[in-house]
């Protein structure tokens, strides 16, 4: 009944017209940036946008348009990080359902951030980032260990269930810490849905080094992950240091999604959806999969954020809600087509 996962990178690492698709993804990202700056909860005409960005101006309209710039930058960065984290996690676990949200990593980061706010008195990004990374790493290790217990190793089913249950349990603990502390709760309530609306360039810069290290680790391990897709034994036979590659790749993935979570709160499904879509068109070579996924993730999150700003004017729908509503159907599609769970 239960088969192990068909590895997403099984077989030879194929690529199909990668340069062409990189250009397409880049164009999509640029288009998303343009839309994100042009549209928002305040209706602004295109000449006014031009006026605000290029000429400069000091009326409310110009200020509103300029405030969209840091948020757009943040959306790009977070989207790219989450998508790359998804590629890494799927590659390392050889599990098509791996995603920072599904694996409970986001909830680990949330819990430790709340601990930091409530008990250590952290209230700046320099503090959040360490707590978020610690929580992300601990949750990732925990869910992977729990999901690997028992017969058959880490099957998609066991990992997803372990992630779902860990998420629920950690959320309970988070709630337990928050309830007696209304002031923390009020900040957290908006952070937890995942948003980029409170973006500040200063915070983004603080987290950049962590993202840079994450990206470097991804780049280092990309070709190793291709070979790991053939199975541990085959990869070892081809001279890949299996344990080290896996550890480095996982560290890269956790760094990226921990940093993204510290910046924007837990945002689900970008890490799941983007790698699958990109794999469909580009193929399974991680050296292309990573950059194209990063661009696509950046485009997707920026677009989702723009949609969230426009559909419920004058209110905003947080981007985390939009990605979950869009992403869950893709998750189901992956379950139906890719996990090898068939009658």
């Amino acid at each position: 009944m239960i088969e192990t996962a068909a590895p997403p990178t099984a077989g030879a690492a194929v690529t199909r017209r990668p340069r062409w698709w990189t250009a397409v993804a880049l164009a999509a990202a640029l288009g998303a940036v343009a839309l994100s700056i042009a549209f928002g909860s305040r209706v602004v005409s295109l000449p006014e946008v031009w006026q605000a960005i290029v000429v400069g101006g000091d009326d409310i309209t110009a200020a509103a348009v300029r405030s969209r710039v840091p948020r757009t930058l943040l959306a790009l960065l977070v989207g790219a990080s989450l998508a790359m984290a998804g590629v890494m996690l799927q590659g390392v676990t050889r599990n098509p359902l791996a995603d920072p949200y599904i694996l409970g990593i986001n909830s680990g980061a949330s819990l430790t951030v709340v601990i930091g706010i409530a008990f250590v008195g952290i209230h700046s990004m320099q503090g959040y980032i360490w707590f978020a990374l610690t929580g992300a790493a601990l949750a990732a290790a925990f869910v992977y260990t729990v999901g690997s217990l028992g017969r058959g190793g880490p099957t998609p089913l066991k990992l997803a269930l372990a992630g779902a249950i860990t998420t629920a349990a950690l959320t309970s603990l988070t709630t337990a810490i928050l309830l007696p502390r209304m002031e923390v709760m009020n900040v957290y309530r908006f952070w937890v849905v995942g948003g980029v609306g409170r973006a500040e360039n200063h915070d983004t810069l603080t987290v950049m080094p962590f993202i840079a290290v994450g990206v470097a680790l991804c780049a280092l391990t990309a070709s190793g992950l291709n070979l790991l897709g053939l199975g541990d034994d085959a990869a070892a036979g081809l001279g890949v240091p299996v344990v080290r590659t896996r550890l480095l790749a996982a560290t890269g993935g956790v760094l990226l999604c921990g940093a993204a979570t510290a910046l924007a709160g837990p945002i689900g499904f970008v890490g799941l959806v983007v790698p699958h879509l990109v794999r469909l068109v580009v193929g399974s070579d991680h050296r292309w999969l990573l950059p194209v996924s990063a661009l696509t993730g950046a485009a997707l999150l920026t677009l989702a954020d723009t949609v969230g700003r426009v559909v419920a004017r004058p209110q905003e729908i947080e981007v985390g809600i939009i990605t979950a509503l869009l992403g869950a159907p893709v998750f189901i599609w992956v379950v139906l087509t890719r996990t090898g769970v068939r009658a």
Partner: peptide
Amino acid sequence: RGGVVGTRLILIGIGIAAMLHSATLYLLVS
């Protein structure tokens, strides 16, 4: 599709749960 398999049902359920949870969050925040 092609006979109900427990595993598939559970995984799809987890996906649906995530989607509905985000709807809950939206209702609460708004």
